[in-house]
Design a protein around this nucleic acid. Structure first.
Lengths: 182, 182
DNA sequence: CTTAGACCTTCTACTTCTGACATGTCAACA
DNA sequence: TGTTGACATGTCAGAAGTAGAAGGTCTAAG
């Protein structure tokens, strides 16, 4: 059985890049770097760290104050990360709540439908602004996380711009359908 | 507690548009229309139909051969769909296995990283072709599902084109990093 | 001294999702 | 007649994800 377990590998990968860290550190790092790529709750992360330890992919390098456990990736962990990167085909999950709602917009009044789309566009504009701010505040170095983080950020920008254009196009289509009499 | 329960509303919405159907019909319809928007397994769908019935949002209109149950959406169901459409803010799930792998590509050799990106681009090209074929084979009417399905398909096309461009850009960046000596 | 706030981990209960397996009916056709 | 294949539903175990409570330590500021 080849399970996917992306959270596992997200944690493993970050631990490699961070060159060891505690669950708490990892959690913060997740919030900063992985927020737009992979989400994880605190309980999920701590649980996964224990499983990774049990499986020998990471180990407790040292214990600090407040019960802090500093984790370090083992050679087996590095091998597993590599295997996952190169040999496990990425699963494309297609699940989009906004697109799902779109399908059923015929069930509400045309002006309600248009309002829905406009609201999504407005939300997107906010996110776009936030992304711009974020980008300005980051100092991009040449470490791996910086380099690949920048690539991911560019993706985010392109994605949102594409989506924004599409919303505008949808609004035109809705208007045309609503008033098709020439 | 406001739960999200998108599958529930996807089923409800499709049942409305289909003007009643069996679980089997619904399953087929899911495969055809929702494949790129929301995925559901058979067990999930049948289970949800029973829960929707228990909650009074749908009802068994008639029973046919082979235990077939024809479901019909109730007024409560329609109201619930409407409430979900307009009042429950869509949750944006950001989870992308390809992007996640991208973050850790620094852990493999530069040529392996480039090969990974090229492989993803090739997969995308296949999907793009398949989408083009699909589009050509659909007869777009003016019913809701056709109209909104067309909007969703346009989204798919734009999404893939954007992603394709981004892959090319990433390959350039990788090449530049791999051979930065001027 | 005390207290607020950051640090740090664990656990529980629940929902959702996945991937099978199980079970059977009906229509067509060889 | 037998068998294939579409039709049709149900159940179960396990994995993954969500949400929050609980419990505790250390530091710095007032």
């Amino acid at each position: 059985m080849v399970r996917n377990m992306s959270l596992r590998h997200a944690a493993l990968g970050l631990l490699v890049e961070m060159d060891g860290a505690s669950g708490y550190d990892l959690l913060k790092m997740f919030e900063i770097t992985m927020n737009n790529v992979w989400q994880a709750t605190q309980s999920q992360l701590y649980g996964e760290l224990n499983k990774l330890t049990a499986d020998g992919f990471i180990e407790v390098a040292s214990e600090g104050p407040r019960g802090r456990k500093e984790y370090r990736v083992t050679d087996e962990g590095r091998a597993e990360l590599r295997r996952w990167l190169l040999e496990v085909p990425p699963k494309v999950v297609r699940r989009d709540e906004i697109l799902l709602r779109l399908f059923f917009l015929g069930q509400v009044e045309p002006d309600e439908a248009a309002a829905f789309v406009r609201a999504q566009a407005a939300t997107l504009d906010d996110r776009l602004t936030a992304l711009g701010d974020l980008e300005g505040n980051i100092e991009w170095g040449d470490e791996n996380l910086s380099f690949y983080g920048r690539l991911a950020m560019e993706y985010g920008k392109r994605f949102m711009a594409m989506r924004r254009d599409w919303y505008d196009w949808v609004l035109e289509e809705l208007a045309e359908r609503g008033a098709p009499e020439k």
